[in-house]
């Protein structure tokens, strides 16, 4: 659980900076930030499951 929380915190912090930097309107930034966050989380989970099966 701690690992998941740390990964989520990392994804959130990176998404905040990426989201704030990109796009033009606040709405677009919010959507982009959420997209980056979701991407970090999904990729992190997929990679962790792949690595789980590799001895």
């Amino acid at each position: 659980m701690r690992h998941f929380f740390v990964m989520a915190l990392f994804a959130a912090l990176a998404a905040i900076v990426f989201g704030a930097m990109a796009k033009d309107t606040t709405r677009e930034r919010m959507i982009y930030g959420l997209k980056v966050f979701a991407e970090f989380m999904v990729i992190g989970l997929v990679l962790s499951w792949i690595l789980y099966f590799i001895p």
């Binding site: 912090l13 990176a14 905040i16 900076v17 704030a20």
Partner: peptide, 13 residues
């Protein structure tokens, strides 16, 4: 807001 969000993210990291 940018200062708070972007700067804050670095301090927290």
């Amino acid at each position: 807001y940018r200062a708070l969000l972007m700067g804050g993210a670095v301090w927290i990291c």
